[in-house]
């Protein structure tokens, strides 16, 4: 008997509590969806008739567009809601939004929100599938999944690889999701950045900590360079962007000192000349554009795997599949 295939549950809120099998299922499912994006007609009817709402409480162009492509290529009907906080308090808006979505019988919600836990909050209150497109500083699971896929494509595997997350780890949901995904799939994970931007207790999660970028470069097979936000300087976590570039910037000169060709990744959008040098971002070892391509495929896989499906008819379907 083949073992039962892993399923994903109703929502995708984060990688922290997922099993390695579930993560691999998503990555494996993303492969055929890459091919769909190469076709002349980039559309399959898999999610035809499904209504998906992109509920973005934080401005985001690239993630939202990526999800929109994924949804449309699956033939779903999409609605974009940009709910920026007005005079209404953020918490109030979220509860009422949940109730309204429930009342409209939306099939799936993709949510990005400035509060950690918002995706789970929503998922616990509505029957629709909820996909976390970034909640506060907590997780950004589809980003980490496309990062994992990109690494796997480039290196053929994830297990045993040395991956270092560089930059503002404290405020980064991308870093947290990557940390979970990479450790679950057997990679060695490190973080590197100024101590002011390092979260408490990170070592207890099985992660190496490098205080200098030179140490990270000496160690890593892959660098995932995180975006440094301007407000970190304004809030006093670092003295200036210039100093950050001088001390922590990923530059060709620093990379040359490594014995290996280090794969360079960045979730985007990039601050060229702050966390990453343009020559590195555009260089031969950068897979940043592949990340974007894989983003659509991964999101299609997630939507496909979460949508609909009733377990009790699985056997009937298996029998029917041999026609």
């Amino acid at each position: 008997m083949t073992p039962p295939s892993p399923t994903l549950g109703k929502d995708l809120t984060g990688l922290e509590h997922m099993t390695p099998e579930q993560i691999r299922l998503i990555l494996d499912t993303a492969e055929p969806f890459k091919e769909v994006s190469e076709r002349p007609i980039k559309k399959v009817p898999a999610l035809r008739g499904k209504t998906i709402v992109n509920l973005f409480f934080e401005a985001s162009t690239r993630t939202r567009i990526s999800f929109e492509f994924a949804e449309k290529r699956l033939s779903a009907d999409t609605v974009n809601v940009a709910a920026t906080g007005s005079s209404v308090s953020k918490g109030e808006t979220l509860v009422d939004t949940a109730r309204n979505l429930e009342a409209m019988r939306i099939d799936m919600v993709v949510i990005r929100h400035p509060s950690s836990g918002a995706a789970e909050f929503l998922g616990n209150r509505i029957a629709s599938n909820v996909i976390n497109a970034g909640d506060g500083k907590h997780e950004h699971p589809t980003q980490a999944l496309l990062d994992l896929l990109t690494i796997r494509d480039k290196h053929g595997k994830i297990e045993g690889l040395k991956v270092c997350l560089v930059g503002d780890v404290l405020h980064s949901r991308v870093a947290r999701s990557n940390l979970w995904g990479l450790t679950k799939l057997g990679a060695e994970v490190a973080v590197c950045g100024p101590w002011t931007l390092m979260p408490r207790g990170i070592e207890e999660l099985g992660v190496k900590v490098f205080g200098r970028i030179e140490e990270a470069i000496e160690w890593a097979d892959v660098l995932n360079v995180l975006r440094l936000q301007l407000e970190r300087m304004e809030k006093g976590f670092i003295p200036s962007l210039r100093e950050y570039y001088r001390v922590f910037g990923v530059t060709p000169e620093r990379l040359e000192r490594s014995p290996r060709a280090i794969t360079i990744m960045h979730p985007g959008p990039m601050n060229r000349g702050v966390e990453i040098d343009s020559r590195v971002a555009d260089g031969p070892h950068s897979v940043i554009l592949d990340q974007v391509t894989n983003g659509v495929a991964v999101r299609m896989a997630v939507l496909y795997l979460l949508a609909g499906g009733r377990a009790e008819l699985a056997d009937a379907a298996k029998r029917g599949a041999s026609e």
């Binding site: 836990g117 909640d135 500083k137 949901r173 999660l205």
Partner: peptide
Amino acid sequence: HEGLVATRLGLKG
């Protein structure tokens, strides 16, 4: 509380 749980939950401690 600022600690490991806050780090995992992505909440400011």
